[in-house]
C-alpha cells in the first residue's frame, strides 16, 4: 500500500489531498481531503500521468507587440513541457491573429493544440 500527500491545484482553494494506492490484483485509488469531485480526478491523474496547461508566448510580426501569448487548449503531460517549449520557441507568426486560432495543431502528438490567447 502506497500513500501520497499532495496539494490540489484544480482551483485556488488548494485542498490537501491524501491518496492511498491499494493493489490487490487491480490498482485501487482512495482519495481523501478533497472538497469536490474534481479533486479525485486530479489526485489519480497526478499519480498516474500528471498533466499541466502550458502558457507561453511566440514571436509575432507586424503587430502591436513583439510577442503573442499562447496556451495549450487542454492539459499536456508534465514530462513533455520542456520539449513543447523548444517547439514554441521556434515559432513565428504574422498579425492578424484571432484569439483561439490554432498555432500548432496536435503538439507533440498529445492531441492538444497550441492556440493564441489573444487577438493581435
Amino acid at each position: 500500500m502506497l500513500k501520497k500527500e499532495m496539494t490540489c491545484i484544480v482551483c485556488p482553494i488548494g485542498c490537501q489531498l491524501e491518496v492511498t494506492v491499494k493493489s490487490n490484483g487491480e490498482l485501487e485509488y482512495v482519495v481523501t481531503g478533497n472538497k469536490c469531485k474534481r479533486g479525485i480526478d486530479y489526485a489519480i491523474n497526478e499519480i498516474t500521468n500528471p498533466t499541466r496547461v502550458l502558457t507561453s508566448t511566440v514571436k509575432i510580426k507586424n503587430a502591436l507587440l513583439k510577442r503573442l501569448p499562447v496556451r495549450t487548449n487542454g492539459a499536456i503531460p508534465k514530462v513533455k513541457i520542456f520539449e513543447c517549449m523548444k517547439i514554441i520557441n521556434n515559432v513565428e507568426v504574422k498579425s492578424p491573429i484571432k484569439c483561439g486560432e490554432v498555432i500548432i495543431k496536435n503538439i507533440l502528438e498529445t492531441g492538444i493544440d497550441l492556440v493564441a490567447s489573444r487577438s493581435m
Binding site: 482551483c11 485556488p12 496547461v53 502558457t55 507561453s56 508566448t57 501569448p69 496556451r71 490567447s117 489573444r118
Partner: peptide, 16 residues
C-alpha cells in the same frame, strides 16, 4: 499570460 482567471465569472479557466 498564465491561466486561472475567470473561474467565478465565466466558470472556466482563462488567461489574462
Amino acid at each position: 499570460i498564465h491561466n486561472g482567471f475567470g473561474l467565478h465569472i465565466f466558470k472556466e479557466e482563462l488567461t489574462g
